[in-house]
Amino acid sequence: MTTSNYVGPLSFAVFAVPADAELVSVIDELQSLQLSHAVEVLDLELVELSDDGTVRRLTFADETAAAAETDLLDDDDLSEIGRELRAGERALVVVYEDRSLATVADRITAIGGREAWAGGIDAADLDEGVAS
């Protein structure tokens, strides 16, 4: 959870999974990450591409997962996700705050410091600076 000492980088991940895949172990792992304070899940969505090409949200059967649905994604986000899906797939979308440095931030605050900046880097951007 966000504190006045630290707001971790906000990020998202979109996972394409088979449409009939059981997600119980995935939801359990996300819950484990939250309980360990490694992440704070801000939104959890299950998305599918209909035969007519429209993208729609699905409802989770799991109560824990359903409680994490906050509809942060807009129609443009859904369209982008839909373009990545293949026939027979659906997408699990996780919007989250990275909390892995929260304890470091607490120690910084304890010595009179403060968080000045936090952000993310697209892994693809790291490859651009590497000489071949």
Rank of each mutant, 00 (worst) to 15 (best):
I108T: 12
S36K: 12
Q34Y: 05
S32L: 14
R107T: 05
T103R: 08
A16V: 03
L85I: 06
S25I: 09
L33F: 14
E89W: 10
E115Q: 15
A13S: 15
D62Q: 06
V95C: 13
A116W: 11
A131H: 11
T64F: 10
D43F: 02
V104A: 06
I81T: 05
D71R: 10
G129L: 14
V17P: 00
S36V: 06
D62V: 03
R57E: 15
P9C: 09
Y6S: 01
G119C: 06
R114A: 12
E48H: 09
L72M: 11
A87S: 13
E115T: 04
F12G: 02
E69P: 00
E48P: 00
D125V: 05
D43E: 13
V24G: 04
A21P: 01
A87H: 11
Y6T: 01
R114H: 11
V39E: 00
G112V: 09
E115R: 01
G8V: 13
T64Q: 09
G82N: 09
A110P: 06
R86M: 06
Y6E: 09
L33Y: 13
G112C: 05
Y6I: 02
A110C: 07
D52I: 10
A65Y: 08
R57Q: 11
E63N: 09
V7T: 15
L73I: 01
S36A: 13
A116Q: 13
G112W: 10
D125G: 05
T54A: 05
V94E: 07
D20E: 15
D62M: 06
I108P: 02
Q31I: 10
A110E: 15
G119V: 04
T70L: 03
D75Q: 13
E128G: 00
V47Y: 09
T70Y: 00
T70F: 01
A123G: 03
G53V: 13
D75A: 11
V41W: 10
I121M: 13
F60N: 04
G120R: 15
P18V: 07
G112M: 10
G129T: 12
M1Y: 04
A38L: 12
